[in-house]
Amino acid sequence: MENILEVNNLTKEYDRFSLKNVSFNLPKGMIMGFIGENGAGKTTTIKAILDIIQNYRGEIKIFGLNSHEDSAMIKEDIGVVLDDMFFPEILTPNDINFAMKNIYKNWDSSLFQHYLELFSLEPKKIIKNFSKGMRKKLEIATALSHHPKLLILDEPTSGLDPVVRAEVMDIFQEFIQNEECSILLSSHITTDLEHIADYITFINDGEIILSTTSDELFNQYGIVKCGKEAFQKLDTSDYVKYKKNKYEYDVLVRDKKAFQRKYHMNVIDKITLDDLMVLMIKGEK
């Protein structure tokens, strides 16, 4: 499968934080959910992909091209939603359309108007007077209106109500239907990712600790809830992490079926991304 985005050994050092050999691939026609707690390195990784930060080690390829050297060509085909970074709030959606016509070769004013209507955004209202959710909708409309092939979205649905979120998720799914377009989607709303992501990449403290298909993750990983006695019988190599609760242990297992065969435990819960994050970050080994 051809990759639309390849991140190889991305390393960026700051005084108190660093990205350590971050690597993952996003194939064409797929949505990748990018998860991790606050400060784990999601936004820094996205900024490196978009050339907002430089002086990193490693290689980033987008559409098979070097993200830094071929930046201008690449950016014609990327749509971006960033957390709190956008057009100045004194502008209106009409002003954005006015400017973007001469920024992107493929800017489609009628498509932009279509999204404005779909999201009930007033074209002449200044951004400052939009609610947080409406601003997000405007950012999404702007990201989609030049027919990009890759969407890079950092918290695109924060501040949106469930109805609009569902609407936006439908748009994202429609976006990848031609199997030529992909989405890298960073979000804390993990239920959205569970619904639409084909891949999940999990970053913690600047390191990728998991990058796999959603099918593999949700079919193979599981949570075993057991008492102290049963937990003590488990071999440490048979589970990833565990968390001790008041009355029971939550144990994260990587291979549900193998675990079932070995320990004859019939009840292994399906994993959610929230469970995965909590156990991977707060759990013990």
Binding site: D51, L82, P88, I103
Partner: peptide, 24 residues
């Protein structure tokens, strides 16, 4: 005032994601 609005809304970070953003 244009610089102030740009700064306040972190426009520059967004601008560099646009084609030839830094130069233009």
């Amino acid at each position: 005032s244009t610089f102030s609005y740009d700064d306040f809304n972190k426009w520059d970070a967004y601008a560099v994601t646009l084609p030839n953003g830094r130069k233009n």
